[in-house]
Design a protein around this nucleic acid. Sequence first.
DNA 1: TAACATTATATCGTACACGATATAATCTAT
DNA 2: ATAGATTATATCGTGTACGATATAATGTTA
Lengths: 144, 144
Amino acid sequence: MHEQLKLGNQLCFRLYTASRLITQAYRPLLEPLGLTYPQYLVMMVLWEQDNQIVGDICRRLMLDTNTLTPILQRMEREGLVVRTHGITDGRQTLVSLTKKGKHLEEQAKDIPKCMSQNWHGEDMNMAQLTNMVEAIDKLIKELK
Amino acid sequence: MHEQLKLGNQLCFRLYTASRLITQAYRPLLEPLGLTYPQYLVMMVLWEQDNQIVGDICRRLMLDTNTLTPILQRMEREGLVVRTHGITDGRQTLVSLTKKGKHLEEQAKDIPKCMSQNWHGEDMNMAQLTNMVEAIDKLIKELK
DNA sequence: TAACATTATATCGTACACGATATAATCTAT
DNA sequence: ATAGATTATATCGTGTACGATATAATGTTA
């Protein structure tokens, strides 16, 4: 047996699993809003700053257009955003919140607090969370 | 603006992104072996212990059968594993490595080392990695 | 200014994820 | 022994991810 291959040694598997479980934990909170987790990420980007072009949202979420375009199309079908062709640059697509999309922010405002309760159990303290966030940021930077 | 919604504050987004980037980093290493990352996880489980039933692999990878069955079917089509019906319990499906599947372990043995070089940059030390793994384990435990 | 490269987005094909449901085998309590 | 519950796996539908390719608009350069 090659010891390095053992699943227990793998940081990657943990990140993969944690990511899946977190998305699952979001589901019951997001379902009432009619959002999936990736759609929620897009909404957060737009709530922070409305009227962004596809490419800027891509860069923010580190996703390519082949992933984001279908998501935006579904969100447009749901009436959360509208996509208009750029005026100065005809290649760009501008994504804007609809009234419905803007109103959703109010309904979403408690989600982060709800989620954070999942990992503020007795054996997970603030320092560890801060360290984890820092470490993941470095990891992401190395991988980018 | 609701401050909690800011993307920068979100641990979840980091985990989601790190997981995607790691899977991407695996791709060039796994492609020569004809494996995807989830398939590689299955192979690691089977290399560690051959002849396991679907349910045990599910529990090990924390995946449900609706995800794992199609993966196993593709792996069977590729000649990496065979699936046979259980003898003692007719509901079970036993998954076994083929000769091809077993031989692949030799080719895969350097992958963990290659991968770990991605996050052993100058500003990421061993202690941080250990802490991160511990913290993610706790997180997974809370979410499970 | 006409060819050519570049850029922004979209489309396509394959492979996950996962909730919901189906199916078939085993177990259990009459 | 048999109806009903449970368990193990499979199937289905929808929504990502992502490499590869297409398309169309903009820049660039001879």
